Computed example of a mutant assay.
Amino acid sequence: MKRFFLILLCLGIFSCKGDQSQDTDVTETSTDTLNTEDLIPDALKNSKPVILNLEEANKLAELPLSCIDTEYPNKLGQTLENKDALGEPSELHPAFYGCFDWHSSVHAHWSLVSLLKQFPDVEKKEAIRESLKNSLTSENIQAEVNYFNREQSGSYERTYGWAWLLKLAQELKTWEDPLGEELSANLQPLTDIIVQKYMEFLPKLNYPIRVGEHTNTAFGLTFAYDYAETTENSELLELVKKRAQDFYLKDDDCPVSWEPGGYDFLSPCLSEIDIMSRVLPKNAFSLWVDDFMPQLKDEDFQMEVGEVSDRTDGKLVHLDGLNFSRAWVFYRLANKYPDTFGHLKMLANEHISYSFPNVAGDSYEGGHWLGTFALYALKESGNTPKA
């Protein structure tokens, strides 16, 4: 019966579609008077939040700065049409050739933009600006467009790299700085290609990909949703909403006890929750969680951190990324619905506290990408001080 009412809610019969701010539930406690500290289990109250301050921002900036011009080692992930398709990474991808692979280079650029926006006085601000300006030229972006237009590049970076490209585009579009406007305009032809690829691919995807690595469908939908919402791209936004509900609305009892997989850097269960928290209004989302992962509402809910045995192993270190990606979902839920999920903040703190001390001094196997995951999690925490 609950499933029936949830479907009715999402069809709009109870007027739940639209502005979520108008979707209230009289049975829930007002967040104006709620002390979310009371919702935190005693066992987790000792987990202190990591604060992204200027000192930490300076450390995190070193990671993308040191890798976006590092061409080797490099994982191209390329399908060759013929021998002429071979080339040096910097020839094939003059904008995004560093940081080991294309998607890591893209989100390294996102990290630099995000840090500049949050901390205009970051120590190496001029080096960051110069690096961004050198990478994201119109000529370099046109070469990236040409690569995506190759005959064998139709599925290149689908959808993980696509998602991060749209996150970079979103960050540039909301940067109130002449450089941000210039780089956003330069990036736009590639952004348009990626949006079009989403529009073409999502209707053809009959079944979602539920894994803890790059091809996870829910993750790809989440960043596409954020971009579409920010840029008011209604066509993409409605498609993402539709496909998310097609894929996940009827899901029950996510097997969270199966997590984590040995190479996971995303949680299949939490990634699904992340996108559904965006596309469903408050009451509908609450009903959906009751079926999908009801234990998440339990004030004593626990999820052990992913433990890393060898940070020099490029696959095993994925589990540090898992801790950060779990944390950003926990933080987002706790901040959006503190009356229901406020207790998840301490669980997020626990996950970040395990992995964050290892980021700045990490080997290249993790250092070329983990800083981005840490930064995104800390941004979602709401603990970043005003610059």
Score class of each variant (00 low, 15 high):
residue 251 D to T: 10
residue 251 D to I: 11
residue 251 D to P: 04
residue 252 D to T: 15
residue 252 D to Y: 13
residue 253 D to L: 11
residue 254 C to V: 15
residue 255 P to W: 04
residue 255 P to R: 07
residue 255 P to A: 12
residue 256 V to Q: 15
residue 257 S to A: 15
residue 257 S to L: 11
residue 258 W to F: 12
residue 259 E to N: 09
residue 259 E to M: 05
residue 259 E to Q: 00
residue 260 P to V: 10
residue 260 P to Q: 06
residue 260 P to I: 07
residue 261 G to N: 12
residue 261 G to I: 08
residue 262 G to N: 08
residue 262 G to S: 11
residue 262 G to E: 14
residue 263 Y to C: 09
residue 263 Y to H: 15
residue 264 D to E: 09
residue 264 D to M: 06
residue 265 F to L: 08
residue 265 F to V: 02
residue 265 F to G: 02
residue 266 L to R: 05
residue 266 L to K: 07
residue 267 S to A: 10
residue 267 S to Y: 03
residue 267 S to Q: 04
residue 267 S to E: 02
residue 267 S to F: 07
residue 268 P to G: 08
residue 269 C to W: 03
residue 270 L to N: 00
residue 270 L to Y: 04
residue 271 S to M: 01
residue 272 E to M: 05
residue 273 I to R: 01
residue 273 I to L: 07
residue 274 D to N: 15
residue 275 I to Y: 02
residue 275 I to F: 01
residue 277 S to C: 07
residue 278 R to C: 00
residue 278 R to A: 00
residue 278 R to E: 13
residue 278 R to K: 14
residue 278 R to L: 10
residue 279 V to T: 08
residue 279 V to E: 04
residue 280 L to C: 06
residue 281 P to L: 02
residue 281 P to T: 09
residue 281 P to K: 10
residue 282 K to S: 15
residue 282 K to Q: 12
residue 284 A to G: 08
residue 284 A to H: 10
residue 285 F to G: 03
residue 285 F to Q: 02
residue 286 S to W: 04
residue 287 L to N: 08
residue 288 W to H: 03
residue 289 V to S: 02
residue 289 V to I: 12
residue 289 V to F: 02
residue 290 D to G: 11
residue 291 D to S: 13
residue 291 D to P: 00
residue 291 D to E: 15
residue 292 F to P: 03
residue 292 F to G: 07
residue 292 F to M: 03
residue 293 M to G: 06
residue 293 M to K: 02
residue 293 M to E: 13
residue 293 M to Q: 04
residue 294 P to A: 05
residue 294 P to D: 05
residue 295 Q to H: 06
residue 295 Q to N: 11
residue 295 Q to E: 13
residue 296 L to D: 01
residue 296 L to V: 07
residue 297 K to I: 00
residue 298 D to H: 09
residue 298 D to T: 00
residue 298 D to F: 05
residue 299 E to I: 04
residue 299 E to V: 13
residue 300 D to K: 09
residue 300 D to W: 04
residue 301 F to E: 01
residue 301 F to D: 06
residue 301 F to G: 10
residue 301 F to P: 06
residue 304 E to G: 08
residue 304 E to M: 08
residue 305 V to N: 07
residue 305 V to I: 09
residue 305 V to D: 03
residue 306 G to N: 03
residue 307 E to Q: 11
residue 308 V to M: 02
residue 309 S to E: 13
residue 310 D to G: 07
residue 311 R to C: 03
residue 311 R to E: 09
residue 312 T to Q: 13
residue 312 T to P: 14
residue 312 T to E: 12
residue 312 T to F: 15
residue 312 T to Y: 15
residue 314 G to Y: 15
residue 314 G to F: 14
residue 314 G to R: 11
residue 314 G to N: 11
residue 315 K to A: 13
residue 316 L to S: 10
